[in-house]
Design a protein around this nucleic acid. Structure first.
Length: 132
DNA sequence: CAGATGACTCCCA
DNA sequence: CTGGGAGCCATCT
């Protein structure tokens, strides 16, 4: 009983990851915020333990770190993303301001017991934009 | 239950 | 930019 599909938190993480649309990305922190009850690190741990059965269904490659970079060890994650139309910048990073998944709609989030992202704007860039 | 492990993130030098 | 250290959580031995 309780096969891996009933594991708990990780299962919730997988579910959110599976919702990231093709051609977009999400950060570990974003997934953690949406799932709630865990942090970016936990998301990374969960993705590392994806059941083989799910690999074909799990767009794990769309989850990147907060810098828009790839944290996987030796996997060709970049190629998978480029195949979806995601372009990397000269520093080998994904422009989060452009490809970052804004999270599930408030309705979807509520229906699935998830949280909506507060304001997934590029705060590291937007803050510098405040005019006087 | 304690220890080890692992696809993170932030801060400081 | 690089490097080191701390904080955090779930799961397996």
């Amino acid at each position: 009983m309780s096969d891996e599909s009933e594991r708990g938190l990780y299962e919730r993480i997988y579910r959110v990851v599976a919702q990231v649309p093709r051609g977009m990305v999400a950060t570990y922190g974003d997934i953690a915020a949406i799932v709630g009850g865990c942090d970016a690190r936990t998301v990374g741990y969960a993705l590392n333990e994806i059941p083989k059965r799910r690999e074909g269904d799990m767009p794990w490659q769309r989850i990147i770190n907060s810098q828009g970079g790839i944290s996987t060890r030796g996997v060709r994650q970049r190629e998978l993303l480029e195949a979806e139309g995601i372009a990397f910048d000269a520093r080998d990073r994904v422009p989060l301001a452009r490809y970052r998944w804004p999270g599930p709609s408030a309705e979807d989030a509520a229906a699935q017991g998830l949280n909506a992202l507060p304001a997934a704007d590029a705060d590291d860039g937007a803050e510098q934009l405040r005019l006087f």
